[in-house]
Design a protein around this nucleic acid. Sequence first.
DNA 1: CTGAAAGCGCTAACAT
DNA 2: ATGTTAGCGCTTTCAG
Lengths: 342, 342
Amino acid sequence: MKFDSVTIKDIAKALNLSTSTVSRALRGSYEISPETKKLVLEYAEKINYRPNPIALSLKERRTRAIGIVVSEIANNYFSQAINGIESIAYNRGYHVIITQSHESQEREKVNVQHLASRGVDGLLVSLSSESEEIPYLTELHEKGLPIVFFDRITNEIDTHKVVANNYLGAYHATEHLIYQDFKKIAHITSSPHLSITKERLEGYKDALAKHKIPFDENLVKYCHRGGMISQEVEDALTTLFKGKVKPDAIFTASDRLTTVCFGLLKRMKMKRADVGFTGFTNTQLGDLFSPPLTVIRQPAFEIGQTAIELLIQIIESKRPVTHFETRQLETSLIIRESSMKK
Amino acid sequence: MKFDSVTIKDIAKALNLSTSTVSRALRGSYEISPETKKLVLEYAEKINYRPNPIALSLKERRTRAIGIVVSEIANNYFSQAINGIESIAYNRGYHVIITQSHESQEREKVNVQHLASRGVDGLLVSLSSESEEIPYLTELHEKGLPIVFFDRITNEIDTHKVVANNYLGAYHATEHLIYQDFKKIAHITSSPHLSITKERLEGYKDALAKHKIPFDENLVKYCHRGGMISQEVEDALTTLFKGKVKPDAIFTASDRLTTVCFGLLKRMKMKRADVGFTGFTNTQLGDLFSPPLTVIRQPAFEIGQTAIELLIQIIESKRPVTHFETRQLETSLIIRESSMKK
DNA sequence: CTGAAAGCGCTAACAT
DNA sequence: ATGTTAGCGCTTTCAG
């Protein structure tokens, strides 16, 4: 605490000891006599001594804090992932600093650099939709800062990564729509360079191919800000429904896209009733919607847990970690009315 | 950056200057010759020097970081408030550290103490539903740590506070239900000792009184964990509908309570169709629901902005602030179908 | 077993 | 205009 709180020095003075003795006693060094130790400990307790973590960080070059960089906390996927992260971190004695990029690369960079310079012991990051080149991260990684990516990952950096099985999630969702007898399935997704975008697009394509439905690239719309700006989703929808091939179903690729798109569809009154709909989202409110929403749900909490576990593993490993893995967790398709053919 | 990054010392050595000269040059002190200044600045730029904020904090006893304590970020109200806070903080050069209490007082205490010991310049807090006595906060406040409360505030501490006009919000919501001709309006709310609970209850009561509807305390149900545990809401509903006086409408008092309760109502199939419903919530998804939800919306973003502005004001004021204010922002009632009498 | 002293990166009072 | 030194709170050699 910064407001004239008690320091090791105060204890030393009061007990007529040196600061080093006090320090050692406090951390239970074996070279301190039991009596002195007891004396110090009791006095420290009595005056409610708390070591100053800032001084500690300066000295030890570690903070027991880990930084999180996500695009938006107002996103069910991320808030659940963060809860997963915290659930482990706190038990392991780490504190967590959450930052948001709001899908802006500039903001992401600022956050990353701030966290790094604040001395976090490691970083958990899901890239912004604008991020393609990420020198600010590679640089840090090369300097030895432990980083684990989750959700939106990158090939630029060789480290642990944790993702949902986006390919299969998309595949099953698409196939489900096909089984419902939809033929013109549009796919509304985020920035084309994002890992999740590519994986989900692959799943979508492969499901179509499997069922001999030709892939039509006019049915795929990219929202570069991931739906942060509702206008881009509206434009996508307008173009789709004005196009030669009108979609009879829509499959959205991210949390925000799903809710924004579903809302717009309703508002635009584009014969919503007979447009099949499903999308990736972690909202728990899907069955309150009208019609109830068929969703692809990611195990966000578990993804967060896995990511922080891997990160702590790197942080606490004695020797540099060289073998990295990419963990993949399965999604689940929750079928409700919105994807049913009328 | 902690990984052998360049320090002021390196610059000094390279340029054959003393560290103090470098330090002064870097912060543009007038007592440094333009040439030296230029030299230093250019070299610093070249080798990409970044001051170490940890060392800075230790020295200056300030961090330009402010701590936020809320119950849940997976709550539309709080995530919007946090966005408001960030929008101002970043422009003013402050970073923001977000923590969650998950409605647990113990966790709240740990977070507060951690933030304080990490040396945040100030605290923005919305209390957990368990928090009544808050010695860990009063203590800090007495030591001079700037604190601003928002949403769930307390009388224990004399400082700036920012809230929605909960009384009027509840009053209007209740009155709206009355106008729809509902007579037995139940109120499902959080912990009785929370400021928001009291204010909203008052509004509810006064609206009833105004319209000569007798207040029936059996129609008021408290969920002590604020709906964190869905069971407590289910119990509340069960009791209500098994009671002598069955409610014909329900008015919920918080974001989580609103969505959980609305969902349960649907699932429990308790003739949901003719139960009027409205509640406090900041979800933007209300009109996607079935039926579309009538909600009381708080200006969360603006509340966040106001809170951080007041906090920064305290932090940066030269002399101790002694006059404190409680700012109140108006809510808005968004009327949709759920509150309509069939 | 305990103490003195150096140092983490930086700033600022105090020389010069 | 620039350098020297002390100190923020703590740990950790190095000496006794």
